[in-house]
């Protein structure tokens, strides 16, 4: 009799904790998916607008996080010998509005870097093969990376998250505030991108993506479209870098020398899954890959000694390889038309 009651209560407890674990894992997956979506949107906007697969996104997203750190923690401006007028008082955590304003500043600086790269390295290559452009961005990535590694090797590169690592409790489940913030950031970024696509420039960009020469013949300023695509794409990559720096994510409130530089490479499966030129594909791909990664990390952890430490980070690549065998152009990508 007593045994049954104990069993029942244990069962309820187990169920409750299972549900709690599930909710926590789900939120974690959605938050990671949001980061992936921000980064993926950056990739896709640049690819759609300029036919460039931007491998430099890795260094650029890290640059965004480093800029944020310079603005918030050092109270200076990147590249400029001035103080940041919007920096929080020294040694204090900024309030949320001030923090958001500083994010906007960091994104502007990242966008400027994107414009410089576009002008110096991409513009001379308009009309060249896809692969040549992709290799150029690989070169940019390698050239930029030492600077960001150098910058983060200094101690304490915090990005000053206002809420630190606090969380809300929902029932028994702990919901970190940063996860919700990442989801909100992705929603805002997604809304901006969708609004942008319906604006005049967005239509111009879609026209350029469809046929560069025909768009030029219609009087569209293709060079301007390139600039906007790069500014927006790099800003989104930087936003992803900043969002990924928030506390329960592995870098833990800092710019990480190990994790930030490969964030963009972890997003490659997302854009391949969705299709390189599909904005809607990024949404599906981001959530699918992130949920697969997080759920594999949570529910296969008992096999962790066999699978090796950090096995969940290669789940996206395995999903990607399987999807590519079945659909070589991703789920929503445009198949290349092959002519003899």
């Amino acid at each position: 009799m007593g045994d049954t009651a104990l069993m029942d209560s244990l069962l309820i407890l187990a169920q409750a904790s299972a549900a709690t674990t599930f909710i926590q894992t789900l939120v974690k997956g959605l938050a990671l998916g949001s980061v992936y979506i921000m980064m993926g949107l950056g990739f896709v906007i640049i690819f759609k607008g300029t036919q460039v697969l931007n491998f430099a996104a890795a260094a650029l997203s890290m640059a965004g996080a480093v800029f944020m750190s310079i603005l918030i923690a050092d109270g200076g401006l990147p590249f400029l010998p001035f103080d940041n007028p919007l920096a929080p008082a020294e040694g204090t955590t900024p309030g949320i509005p001030l923090w958001l304003v500083n994010i906007a500043l960091a994104l502007i600086f990242a966008a400027i870097v994107g414009l410089i790269i576009e002008r110096l390295a991409i513009r001379p290559m308009i009309g060249q093969p896809l692969f040549a452009m992709a290799v150029i961005t690989l070169g940019v990535e390698i050239a930029l990376r030492p600077f960001s590694i150098d910058a983060t090797a200094l101690e304490g590169r915090s990005i000053g998250v206002p809420w630190g690592a606090e969380s809300w409790t929902l029932g028994d489940a702990l919901i970190p505030k940063s996860y919700i913030a990442a989801i909100v950031m992705a929603l805002v970024a997604g809304a901006i991108v969708f609004a942008f696509y319906r604006s005049r420039f967005g239509v111009a960009m879609r026209a350029v993506a469809f046929d560069q020469e025909a768009a030029m013949a219609q009087g569209i300023n293709v060079a301007r479209v390139f600039q906007i695509a790069w500014a927006l794409g790099v800003a989104l990559a930087a936003l992803a870098g900043i969002a990924y720096g928030m506390a329960p994510f592995p870098p833990g409130g800092n710019v990480s020398q190990e994790i930030h530089p490969i964030l963009a490479f972890r997003v490659l499966p997302v854009i391949v899954l969705g299709g390189l030129d599909s904005v809607i594909g990024v949404l599906y791909g981001g959530f699918l890959i992130a949920l697969a990664e997080v759920f594999a990390g949570q529910y296969l952890s008992q096999y962790g000694s066999t699978l090796g430490p950090g096995y969940s980070t290669i789940v996206p690549y395995i999903v990607m390889l399987i999807v590519l065998v079945v659909r070589p152009f991703g789920l929503f990508g445009t198949p290349e038309i092959r002519r003899v």
């Binding site: 896809l130 490659l268 854009i271 090796g308 430490p309 395995i318 390889l321 991703g330 990508g333």
Partner: peptide
């Protein structure tokens, strides 16, 4: 079989996946 079906940039990205899988295997074994 995966590599032959996939073309262009998709192939380049898929093979980047191989690198990361290889790095993980190096850590795991």
């Amino acid at each position: 079989p995966a590599a032959v079906r996939v073309r262009g940039l998709y192939l380049a990205i898929a093979t980047i996946g191989l690198i990361f899988i290889g790095l993980h295997l190096g850590r795991m074994l």
